Computed example of a mutant assay.
Amino acid sequence: MTDDHTQVQEFFGARAARWDARFPDDGPAFTAGVAALGPRPGDAVLDAGCGTGRALPALRDAVGSTGTVIGVDLTPEMLDTAVRAGRDRAGALLLADVARLPLRPESLDAVFASGLLAHLPHPEENLRELARVVRPGGRLALFHPIGRAALAAHQSRRLTDDDLRAEPNLRPLLSRSGWTMVSYVDEDARFLALAVRQG
């Protein structure tokens, strides 16, 4: 396991038990983010870096009983918290690295990723791995329940020009990784970049 993985696991592992309590009002934002992604009944969808699984119920509601919902996370404690919250009933939970997904090529219709981009050690390669498992024309939502400026203020830091989530940086990054950005919203109450898998 790389140092990057160890740092991510240590950071989230130490916070997993209280993660949902720290963000009790995020549910509607996750539901709206999933709705914007637009999964349909019967779709196969992935929550990449699912954490405590807050998006899983909305994904299950969207794809219905005939669909497939998979949550993947690198941190065992986050998945344990998801199970304790009963969110494993909404989808299968896998302890795995989004950089090496145990999924067949082009086996998914959509990927939802909340807060993932900031924790990817090799963003271009990692986004390309997400593209590998999505069929051409499939969709990706890069989501955060608050926007870049609000998040920076919350973390007592300044926004910088090299922020990967800034539109001038994110659009070409996605393009190099097999995705075409189709919409971009960065406001205090939501960050949401939607992309389509290139064919």
Rank of each mutant, 00 (worst) to 15 (best):
A36D: 10
G64H: 06
A36K: 08
P123Q: 01
F112M: 05
F30Q: 09
P57F: 11
A99M: 04
L95M: 12
M181N: 09
T31L: 07
L127C: 04
A58R: 08
E106A: 13
F12Y: 15
P105R: 14
L103G: 12
D97R: 05
W19M: 04
P57I: 11
H122P: 01
A62E: 12
L174K: 07
G13D: 14
D61G: 13
P28Q: 10
A21Y: 02
L130F: 10
R54A: 15
A166S: 14
R60Y: 10
A55G: 09
H119C: 06
R197P: 08
T6V: 09
A166Y: 04
G38C: 05
T6G: 01
N126I: 03
R132W: 05
E124N: 07
F191H: 11
A149R: 15
T75A: 06
N126A: 13
D25K: 14
F30Y: 15
D162F: 00
D162A: 02
A195K: 15
L173C: 11
A152S: 13
T66V: 02
M181S: 12
L95T: 10
G38L: 08
A90V: 08
G53K: 10
A118N: 01
D162W: 00
V83T: 15
G13V: 04
P172Q: 06
S156N: 06
H119G: 05
L159P: 08
A150N: 03
G71E: 11
L140C: 06
A118R: 07
R165C: 08
Q9I: 09
G71A: 12
P28W: 00
R18Q: 14
R84W: 01
L59N: 03
L140T: 05
L94G: 09
D4I: 00
G64L: 05
L94F: 00
A141Y: 00
G38T: 05
Q9S: 05
F112Q: 11
N169A: 11
E10H: 00
P168K: 10
W179D: 07
L117R: 09
G64E: 03
L159K: 09
P39C: 10
R22K: 14
A17M: 03
H119S: 03
R87I: 15
A131N: 11
